[in-house]
Computed example of a mutant assay.
Amino acid sequence: MSAGGGTKAILAALAANAGIAVAKFGGFLFTGSSSMLAEAVHSVADTSNQGLLLLGQKTSQRKPTPEHPFGYGRDRYFYSFVVALLLFSLGSVFALYEGIHKIQHPEPLHAAWVAVVILLIAIGLETFSFITAIRESKAIKGELTWWQFIRQAKTPELPVVLLEDFGALIGLVLALGGVGLTVLTGDPVWDGIGTACIGVLLGAIAIVLIVETKSLLIGEGATREVLDEIVGQLESERVEKVIHIRTQYLGPDELLIAAKIGISPSLSVAEVAAEIDGAEARVRAKVPAARLIYLEPDLARGRTATA
Rank of each mutant, 00 (worst) to 15 (best):
L119Q: 13
G99Y: 11
E136C: 04
A133D: 09
A122C: 08
I118V: 15
E107T: 08
K141N: 02
A95N: 06
L96T: 01
P108G: 09
A95V: 07
I123Q: 03
I123P: 11
L120P: 04
E126T: 09
W113Y: 13
I100E: 06
R135C: 06
F94W: 13
Y97R: 12
A112L: 04
A139I: 09
T127M: 12
F130R: 04
I121C: 03
F94R: 01
H110N: 14
I100H: 12
L109A: 01
G142E: 06
A115M: 00
W113L: 08
E136V: 05
I123R: 03
I123N: 04
R135W: 09
V116K: 04
V117S: 13
E98P: 12
W113H: 08
V117C: 01
V116G: 10
K102P: 07
H105S: 12
A139N: 02
I134V: 12
I103H: 00
A95K: 08
V114R: 03
L96Q: 06
Y97S: 14
A115P: 11
V116N: 00
R135Y: 11
I121F: 15
I121A: 06
Y97E: 13
V116F: 02
E98C: 04
H101C: 05
I123C: 11
A112E: 13
Q104H: 08
I134Q: 14
S129W: 01
F130T: 07
W113N: 08
I118N: 01
I140A: 14
E98A: 12
V114I: 13
L90E: 10
P108C: 04
V117L: 14
H101I: 04
F128G: 08
K102C: 05
Q104L: 15
L119I: 13
H101G: 06
I134F: 10
L125P: 09
I103Q: 01
S137R: 02
I134H: 11
L109F: 04
A133S: 14
Q104N: 11
G99L: 00
E107C: 01
L90Q: 07
I131D: 03
H101A: 14
V93Q: 09
G91D: 06
E98K: 15
K102H: 15
L120V: 15
E136H: 08
A112P: 09
S92K: 12
E107A: 15
L120C: 05
I100T: 11
W113C: 02
L125E: 05
V116C: 05
A122Q: 12
L120H: 05
V93N: 13
E126S: 05
S92A: 10
A133F: 00
L109I: 04
I100Q: 02
I140L: 12
T132H: 03
K141G: 07
L119T: 15
I140Q: 12
I103W: 03
T132M: 13
G142D: 13
L125M: 00
R135S: 07
I100S: 00
I131K: 06
T132F: 09
W113V: 09
A133M: 11
F94H: 03
Y97W: 12
L120F: 11
G99P: 06
S129G: 09
A95G: 07
V93T: 05
A133P: 12
